[in-house]
């Protein structure tokens, strides 16, 4: 049975005066990996919990497949969930945890054991069956939680910041493992995180949330390169948002208007990088820092505005070549210049 779509229609949740979900509508495609990305308080976890059934919305429809589950209790929704702190049963062994949903479904004990072992094998946990939860590392617990969430073949999978407690290396490894598992199972998945890189790495599509709304719903690349709103631009990393009047069109470039977004890494210090229709901005170095693969520059430009530049190290720049107050011109190619939809001048 193929994993179904999840469709939300004008889901609303209010806590007192705080609107946690402001008429959110979203359609998650069958088998899709959708990430809800946003800062804390943006409503992403509330939305996930509403889908899971732990949060009762004030209004709206939640569908899994064709069925309306809005008023269905949690334990009837057939959803696998991985929680932020793993939420494993501390009084059961690894195997006990993974068998739990199977025994709950009255599977014969032998079959339950067989399937639980298979799920543990899938998450590289063979040989850990008899261990106590307390004896596991964070990564191993994460794998148990994952095995437990999928072992009963739920219709969809929800994950609430499952990797936030892991260190950076392990996190990156787990991102790939989770993604692979999800693709192998072809299970519709909604994943909550506040980590942009994680969202970009894992998702088919990203829904950037802010103030209880989805600001932008797109594949990773468009979200990264063509943020639709100022919030998304800011949230997706080191971007420069500036009025078009500040930049100087080069060559055949047509005059620009409105508000422009240029990512820090899309600037270069060579004229060539801008191509025939790029732009240039002049400024003085206000601060600089070495970040390994890049140099990080703050350029003071017209009107006390600061420009963020991320220049590959060793290529066009070395430390001796930078001094505070030094005059520089930054260039950007036309394809890296993105125009924001409307919005007032910053």
């Amino acid at each position: 049975m193929a994993s179904p779509r999840i469709a939300l229609e004008r889901v609303r949740k209010v806590y007192g005066r705080h609107v946690a979900l402001d008429d959110v509508s979203v359609d998650v495609r069958p088998g899709e990996f959708l990430t809800l990305l946003g800062p804390s308080g943006s409503g992403k976890t509330t939305l996930l919990m509403a889908i899971a059934g732990f949060v009762r919305p004030e209004a709206g429809l939640i569908r899994i497949g064709e069925a309306d589950v809005t008023r269905l209790p949690v334990n009837k929704r057939d959803i696998g969930i991985v929680f932020q702190n793993y939420a494993l049963f501390p009084h059961m062994s690894v195997l006990g945890n993974v068998e739990y949903p199977l025994l709950l479904r009255r599977l014969p004990r032998a079959e339950a054991r067989e399937r639980a072992r298979a799920a543990l094998a899938r998450t590289q946990l063979e040989g850990y069956e008899a261990r106590d939860i307390a004896a596991l590392s964070g990564g191993q617990r994460q794998r148990v939680a994952l095995a437990r969430a999928v072992v009963f073949e739920p219709r969809v999978l929800l994950m609430d910041e499952p990797l936030s407690a892991l260190d950076k290396n392990l996190r990156e490894q787990m991102q790939f493992e989770i993604r692979k598992l999800q693709q192998d199972l072809a299970i519709t998945t909604i994943y909550v995180t506040h980590d942009q890189r994680e969202a970009l790495t894992m998702s088919d599509r990203i829904a950037v949330m802010n103030g209880g709304r989805i600001e932008q719903l797109d594949a990773p690349q468009p979200v990264y390169q063509r943020p639709r709103t100022r919030f998304v631009a800011n949230f997706m990393g080191e971007s420069n948002i500036m009025p078009a009047a500040l930049v100087e069109p080069l060559g055949s470039a047509p005059p620009l208007d409105g508000t422009l977004v240029i990512r820090a890494e899309n600037f270069a210090l060579e004229r060539d990088a801008a191509g025939g229709d790029g732009i240039a901005i002049k400024g003085r170095v206000a601060a600089y820092a070495f970040r390994g693969e890049t140099w990080h520059l703050r350029l003071k430009v017209e009107g006390e505005r600061e420009l963020l530049l991320s220049i590959p190290s060793g290529k066009s720049l070395d430390q001796a070549g930078i001094t505070i107050g030094q005059q520089l011109t930054a260039y950007a190619a036309a394809r890296h210049i993105h125009r924001l939809d409307g919005g007032p001048e910053p």
């Binding site: 732990f54 949690v74 334990n75 969930i81 479904r105």
Partner: peptide
């Protein structure tokens, strides 16, 4: 969350 987890699995 442990209780939520059990509920989500159908308990």
């Amino acid at each position: 969350n442990v209780i939520r987890a059990a509920a989500s699995m159908g308990a």
